[in-house]
Simulated scan of single mutants.
Amino acid sequence: MPPWRRRYSPIPSACFLTAAVFIGLGSVAVQILVPYAAHLSAPALRGKAVGDVMSGLMLGIMLARPVSSLITHLSSWRMVFIISTLVMILLTLTLGYVLPVRRPAPGLRYRALMASIGSLAVHNLTLRRRALYHAALFGAFSLFWTVTPLLLTGPEFHLSQVGVALFAFAGVAGAIAAPIAGRVADRGLSKPATLFAMLAAGTAFLLTHIGDTGSHLKLGILVLAAILLDFGVTMNLVIGQRAIFALGEHYRSRLNGIYMATFFVGGAIGSALGGWAYAQGGWGLASLLGTALPAIALCYFASERPATE
């Protein structure tokens, strides 16, 4: 069998895609924990609770790339999945032991619950706004982290996988926005904080045009942009969740499901657009699209009436 056939055998690819599907199905546990934390907290401290949980979520997202790259460099890519499996088993046992049991009052059956999701999305303006705001910002976030590894490993910077991993650690600093955003939202400052988050995301892309390509200054500016972008996106995420969780106790999980699904679609679109833009016009075109996404959210935010949080 020719080497290219052994390398590109469809069986390993099918196994990998199947595993990716099950990982995606299992990852929804996070979206169960966030409304669960909101349910357990007092209304006055709900933003703080959501912010604390989301800080852990964002740390996991931002640490995943650099930690897995470093593990692969020191051992192999298989070790990443072995360690992840062991951590998930330990986490499952821990959560099963420490989390209190919640038994919701009997209500709609599963089919009726699913059917009600469309009605919630259509008739709830705050939910729609917050979901679309974050779809734009998460699209910019995904675009940035899809394209920057291509830029950093390309002929301009010549960074290795370890170098990209160290660069990605910069994004971890943005996770500190989660608890800050939660406390700000609890004080009734959601609107100015949302404005700041959108401006931070857009400014992050504009900053990347400072300095000569491949220079140490340019690399430092990219690090600063990563921190600022992640800070803004995390802040907007927490404020949005705090806002939708205040809409109704009995359907928080459904509200969160709509919110998360909407902005993950935005993230997928941003990632796809980023790869295409970088192939067509390099970082210049990609950063232009990255700037446009928060700008679109900002224009939509400007039309918000005082009664909308």
Rank of each mutant, 00 (worst) to 15 (best):
G163M: 08
L273R: 03
V233K: 02
T153D: 07
G47D: 01
F231V: 05
L25Y: 01
G24Q: 11
I83Y: 08
G47C: 11
R46Y: 04
A131C: 12
I239A: 10
S69M: 11
K218Y: 07
I221F: 02
N256K: 10
I221M: 02
S119Q: 15
L273C: 01
A20D: 06
L151V: 06
R128C: 13
H250P: 07
S68R: 03
G171R: 00
Y110N: 09
A197K: 03
V67H: 09
T234A: 07
A181W: 07
L143R: 06
R103Y: 01
L25D: 09
A307I: 12
L151D: 03
G188I: 12
A64Q: 02
V233N: 07
L166P: 06
F138R: 03
S76T: 03
M260A: 13
F141H: 12
V53A: 06
L229W: 02
V30R: 00
V223M: 10
R7M: 14
S116G: 13
A44E: 15
L25G: 10
H216K: 06
W4I: 13
A136H: 15
P2V: 04
P306S: 09
R103L: 04
V164A: 10
A42S: 14
C15M: 09
R7S: 10
C299I: 15
L99K: 14
L137F: 13
L74T: 14
T194E: 05
M1V: 13
T18L: 10
I11K: 12
A243Q: 01
F263W: 08
P35Q: 03
A297L: 11
T262P: 11
S9M: 06
Q31R: 12
L219W: 04
A302C: 13
G118M: 14
P149V: 07
I83F: 07
P100N: 13
T72S: 10
I244M: 00
A307P: 08
S116F: 14
C299T: 15
A121M: 15
A14L: 11
R65N: 12
G56K: 04
A292C: 15
L159G: 05
L285D: 14
